[in-house]
Design a protein around this nucleic acid. Sequence first.
RNA 1: GCGGAUGUGGCGGAAUUGGUAGACGCGCUAGACUUAGGAUCUAGUGCCGCAAGGCGUGGGGGUUCGAGUCCCUUCAUCCGCACCA
Length: 928
Amino acid sequence: MEYKFSEIEKRWQHYWEKNQTFKVKEDKSKPKYYVLDMFPYPSGAGLHVGHPLGYIASDIYSRYKILKGFNVLHPMGYDAFGLPAEQYAIQTGQHPAVTTENNIRRYREQMDKIGFCYDWSREVRTCDPDYYKWTQWVFIKLYGHWFNKKTNKAEPVDMLIAEFERNGNTAVEAAQNECRVFTAEEWNSMTEKDQQLILLNYRLAYHADTMVNWCPALGTVLANDEVKDGYSVRGGHPVEQKKMKQWLLRVSAYAERLIESLDRLDWSDSLKEIQKNWIGRSVGAVINFSLDHGTRNNNKHGIEVFTTRPDTVFGCTYMVLAPEHELVEKITSPELRSAVEEYLIETKKRTERERMADTKTITGQFTGAYAIHPFSGEKLQVWISDYVLAGYGTGAIMAVPAHDSRDYDFAKHFELPITEVVTGGDISQGSYDAKEGVLINSGFLDGLEVQDAIAKTITELERKGIGYKQVNYRLRDAIFSRQRYWGEPFPVYYKDEVPYVLDEEDLPLVLPEVDAYLPTEKGEPPLGRAKNWKTGEGYPIELSTMPGFAGSSAYYLRYMDPKNDSELVSKEANLYWENVDLYIGGTEHATGHLIYSRFWNKFLYDIGMVCRDEPFKKLINQGMIQGRSNFVYRIKSSNRFVSLGLKDDYDVTPIHVDVNIVNNDILNVELFRKWNPEYDDAEFIFEEDGTYRCGYAIEKMSKSLYNVVNPDDIIEQYGADTLRLYEMFLGPLEQSKPWDTNGIDGVHKFLRKLWKLFHNEKNEPELSDEKPSPDELKILHKTIKKIEEDIERFSFNTSVSAFMICVNELSSLKCNKREILRDLVIILSPFAPHIAEELWQLLGNQGTISKTEFPAYKSGYLEEKTVQYPVSFNGKTRLKINFPAGYDNKDIEDELMRNESVLKYLQGQIPKKIIVVQGRIINIVTGK
RNA sequence: GCGGAUGUGGCGGAAUUGGUAGACGCGCUAGACUUAGGAUCUAGUGCCGCAAGGCGUGGGGGUUCGAGUCCCUUCAUCCGCACCA
């Protein structure tokens, strides 16, 4: 029988489904292992060959872990709410639920063909009310908690209210919005509305006016990680800054814990680094500068600044406020008022994007106000400039031009004084920003090293009561509202314009039907069109929906207990599965999903819902599969195409051509004519051998570049096992690499060679029960060892090579012995499960191979009687000599000096030194 | 500008702890079988050279008996952040 992969693969996929082979339950008799893939957003385009890369890797690892005796949780689901489905709905009028359902069906078909070992009974979809009930539930919990800085964790708002009733808010240390100080009496005499508005400043999910990233084209606000360089990540539409009332999640409260526990995670350095940068922790001091008595409003206000370099305080020669700073209007002198206002108008005109694109142009305006240096008492000019950001620190800086390059450029431009206070640089040339050197011109700091000076300055600030040590974070609270339809509705209603959450019993709050997926005439989000969108008592319900990251923040918990309708996850299930042991997915979620889900998890940990404070122990970012585009070269203003080798003789335009009509860079001319009617009568200038050769380039895999390869086509032609092996064979999992279908023959041939080991020339099964020879055992056990080591370090590309070597060697020995092939098929089964199942049965076994045991390699079979040593002279390998395995260094040296070839290479010289590394190499050193 | 990653044949890549550089596969060359080949099999294939031999892991320098691997320096490409005080 031939290797009929389509038949075999269909048969086993059916078998796994029928027998529920990969259904998994909590089983305390076995150690657990949780392997998770980042679940996909089911787009209309379906999967291309790049998408399953990570799924195949995690599948191999899961199957391997099962063979190793683990109880493996390996689920899959869909991140099904989101913008593309809604945009499509707006264009076509189709309900996003319908297109989403279709896309999911297509994804599922494609995934099923690849032969994954998912437990599909645990599938989740974020758009399913039974699922988003729990997303809404977590939101209610976030609303019901605040972050206590004293205990460094979330606590119920009820406890906070009790504290307010007893003592007011003076002793409360919370991660909070700005809020006035009040006593218990004041609190107790407030109206309910006022109390609720104050509590909003403390809740972990809160409603507030903030500057948001508004995307007019999408008609919604976006989170910071959904915006890149002033454009939306999805769709690439321009984004502007706008003040709006929004729901926010107080992620910033967890900034310290998010950064601190990063060290305990087995994630790549680069990913940890990205997260660290995004969270952006910096240690410094807050310093209060008082205003000069000649300045307006000088009694009421001072300028608070944040600095990471309090040691350079004596180098501060002027101050700068962000244009949006609230003090600007209060302290500007009458003479300069019009100039300042003009500057403010100018900066407002510039969009965020322009400000970012153009950091070279230095702009600013003196306000006419002066501050007083806290130590020297000098008068300092107060400027405004857009190089100071309103959103970071206090929105104001003490400028130290000698030791900050931005301040330096500004000072030079406006001819402000520059005072050197740390030695080590040349102030006439530029600022000296390094944190090394000795303090000068700095009063009580003179002579100190930078680090000591920082500490001493802070002590002095605290003693004088004008400053304190401060840790600042770049991480902003996450804006959680989207003015869109296709997302989770907020379980929120408004009473007298104050938001309240629904009772947990009323969940899920199901997404209502609307007549169009567009804003209302009043400019409200689409939910404004829903009929009866109010509570039983008639209070209006929130019109925004939640963003994409809401549904993906706790999905890994839901897989543990997906059908539970009374809890997000039961205690038992959570205590058994704990958290994800291995998480595989793309690096594009580094600052979004991977921050938010860590935050949600830490919150759920605080409230006792989950037993681990981190969701994903080990994380691997699979590399991107790039496309390999092909080009034809059209001679300008003609319909003639010239082959790659001759194109330099003509004036040509390269044109992308569909890679599916090109084979090994040779164009199929007939298919090319049919591909596009425009080329029907094209003429060609061929190579000497009569072929048309195409050029190529490595680019993103994309429809518009005609380089998309569909896994279905590959499976049709070569089978899923070949696809799986080839995806792994391409290169290291974590690296980006181009897809080139041309190479796939190699792994396909390998499977056919394997098949042949089990069959004779007539293609009939023929297996032997003879005892294996030492050579055969050595080949097998060498491979078992290698495969096990490779899988453990996720080096699947080298595993595939090892299998090829093994089959090549067994083929040349014509080995068809059951004892050898049995183990070989088991270790191959995680990689190529269908053919493995088929051959397993051919070997006479019953049932599935996937629940057998991974064979243990025996080192005894690998021992050699003789060792071949490469012999090098001064590091250059010249020859190879065999020595008995037992020889020690002396034995080897003695025999070397009697060896003719060695003597020939020595040419009479006496070796200075002979280095023998047992079992590895010999190096003979001669003098020079 | 800061941070991270990567540079090895015509191509994808291997070399896990400093120990035979180029495993494995594609492609290419030659041959066999064949009416035919986008099938199969055999042999060869880093570069220069008829050969002996020499040169070779982006470039330069160093440590070492020995460096793709360690150190210094430099270049290129990709990714992340970016007036973050």
